[in-house]
Amino acid sequence: MLTLDGVQLHSTLLLGTGKFASAKQLIAAVKASGTELVTLAMKRLDLQHQTDDILAPLQQLGVRLLPNTSGAKTANEAIFAAELAREALGTHWLKLEIHPDPRYLLPDPIETLQAAQELVKRGFVVLPYCPADPVLCKRLEEAGCAAVMPLGAPIGSNQGLQTLAMLEIIIEQARVPVIIDAGLGAPSHACQALELGASAVLVNTAIASAADPVAMATSFRLACQAGVHARQSGLAAACTQAQASSPLTRFLETL
């Protein structure tokens, strides 16, 4: 269960809406994933001419929309995009994305924190995409963000939890939900993130670029369910040596 702004979401899988071969495929993948929250780039929406073919079907589907500020390189641009999103889509939920580096699309920690502080003041529910930096995540939390969204690896890289050691610290310290945002390439990565204690994951490329995106969306849904169950079940500890499942010293208890 993921709670954001007092809203309980049963799915721990968030979906990105880019890169799909058609709107039809996207909608089928959204349905198969069981997600209740999808993010979409404001720059892709054509609110003036309404030529984009994703907004209307997503709205019909009834999933909650999480507009994002992709394309913004500065805090000011992101704030501008946020205001447009609130006005056009009627939601004050926002995925804050500021990546000035177009090659790796890595988030700018400084601009992100500045924008988050301002957007919270303006009444937004801010979910910032950010580097897997535990101190930054605490600062974003203190700024009033509703969650933090640290990256597992660069966006679209499908490399999995490359920032594992930092993510463990972030999850341990967080008082807000931690949503692992980028770099998850396989359902096992999503499962691992949830086993670690992440509140949710956000996936796009791994599903949209799969040979069968709809089947892959199902796989991620199942993996997320498995990860949550595993976490709730209490994972056994790992160690480097073999541990006999029937300890040889049990007889001592009867003595």
Binding site: R44, G71, K73
Partner: peptide
């Protein structure tokens, strides 16, 4: 993709 940008960006 016909639109992937906004005039206020950049």
């Amino acid at each position: 993709v016909l639109k992937d940008w906004e005039p206020y960006l950049g």
